[in-house]
């Protein structure tokens, strides 16, 4: 029933046995213990399961684990480097883009994808890029301020 597949997550190779009906988010969370990727709705509506797949943020609850074979997957756990937090993470700490923290991983990954493409986005571009990530705590204001702060950090 299960099949061994190879996944590349945060530049690391994983061999993992999965069934066809397992989604990427479930494999990340329950088999690989990468629990920074959250599950808020499981239907692609909330964005808390966002991961970056081949450079693009996607809902990992809509991706079958088997479809992720051969893709370059980045989760929130893969953002820190030996130099410390990623500039977007740093900005979310400094500007308090964080409240309950449940949407945070997804927000940060969507923001990082945006800034990788566009180092100096307008406020509207930020809003558009994060519009698949729901947050119920912040009213988004400090999230936008965090991304703006990070973009300044990145373009410096």
């Amino acid at each position: 029933m299960k099949e061994l597949i190879n996944l590349t997550i945060n530049d690391q190779a994983y061999e993992v046995a999965v069934a066809p009906n397992q989604t990427l988010v479930d494999v990340l969370r329950y088999q690989l213990e990468l629990t920074g990727t959250k599950k808020g709705c499981e239907l692609g509506d909330c964005g808390s399961c966002t991961v970056i797949m081949d450079g693009k943020p996607v809902n990992s609850c809509l991706v079958l684990a088997m479809q992720a074979v051969g893709k370059d997957i980045k989760t929130i756990e893969g953002l820190e480097t030996e130099q410390g937090l990623h500039p977007v993470q740093k900005a979310f700490v400094e500007k308090q883009g964080v409240q309950c923290g449940f949407c945070t991983s997804g927000m940060i990954l969507s923001a990082k994808s945006l800034l990788d493409k566009n180092g100096d986005p307008t406020e509207h571009e930020i809003r558009k890029a994060l519009s698949g990530n729901l947050c119920r705590c912040t009213g988004y204001q400090k999230i936008i301020e965090s991304v703006q702060a990070a973009s300044k950090g990145v373009s410096k």
Partner: peptide, 9 residues
């Protein structure tokens, strides 16, 4: 269509 995350898939 949908959201940026959905559109990427």
């Amino acid at each position: 269509l949908g959201s940026p995350l959905v559109r990427n898939l």
